[in-house]
Design a protein around this nucleic acid. Structure first.
Length: 187
DNA sequence: GCCAACGTTGGC
DNA sequence: GCCAACGTTGGC
């Protein structure tokens, strides 16, 4: 799940939401809102909510709706000096209507969505822990490129093959491989 | 239903 | 701040 750790205004609202911001929330929990098209794009709102902007509506929304209670996800810092995986979060509430789609002053307001048939969903995520070390995009890319040749676990990683999805699926093999990187020196 | 124009994401 | 990638829009 991608979020922007550095301040940036979107329709006058700062979309900054880093993993430190998540940790600072009550119960270290926030709602992941702002998924607004068929693919996730991203951006987290300040205050009580994280928000992602969706990319592909159907796909992104479906990824979100597929998330199950207790599942873990990486918290990825995007659109910043050093992009990479900062920590682990878990799903603590499965998909439910994203209230920001009905709020006129919200950057993710969608006038085409009706209260009796909401278009957009969000989930709640809770901080689990920081990564033992920050896993940079550059490091992941090095492995991805090697694995394309060797057939290693990151050979189809969505971060590179579906680059604009702000919420994206990982296979068990991808997830475990990235966790194993924590124990190693940066390559 | 094609596709050019346009807008957004996000690395660099 | 630039711009490549890629999704969306809308004319036809």
């Amino acid at each position: 799940m991608k979020s922007e750790p550095e301040s940036r205004l979107e329709k006058g609202v700062d979309v900054k939401f880093s993993i430190e911001d998540l940790k600072a929330q009550p119960k270290q929990t926030a709602c992941w809102d702002g998924v607004r098209n068929y693919q996730f794009t991203n951006g987290l709102c300040s205050g009580q909510c994280l928000h992602t902007s969706l990319g592909v509506l159907a796909k992104a929304r479906n990824f979100l709706r597929a998330m199950q209670l207790g599942q873990e996800a990486f918290f990825y810092h995007s659109n910043c000096k050093e992009p990479g995986i900062a920590g682990l979060v878990k799903i603590v509430k499965e998909a439910y209507p994203d209230h920001t789609q009905f709020e006129k002053n919200n950057p993710h307001y969608d006038p085409s969505s009706k209260e009796d048939n909401p278009k957009w969903s969000m989930v709640d995520v809770q901080f689990v822990r920081m990564m033992k070390r920050y896993i940079t995009l550059a490091e992941l890319k090095t492995h991805y490129q090697a694995h394309k040749t060797t057939g290693g676990p990151l050979k189809n990683m969505a971060l590179f093959t579906r680059q604009r999805l702000s919420v994206q699926p990982l296979t068990r093999e991808e997830f475990d491989f990235i966790l194993s990187l924590e124990e190693k020196e940066p390559s």
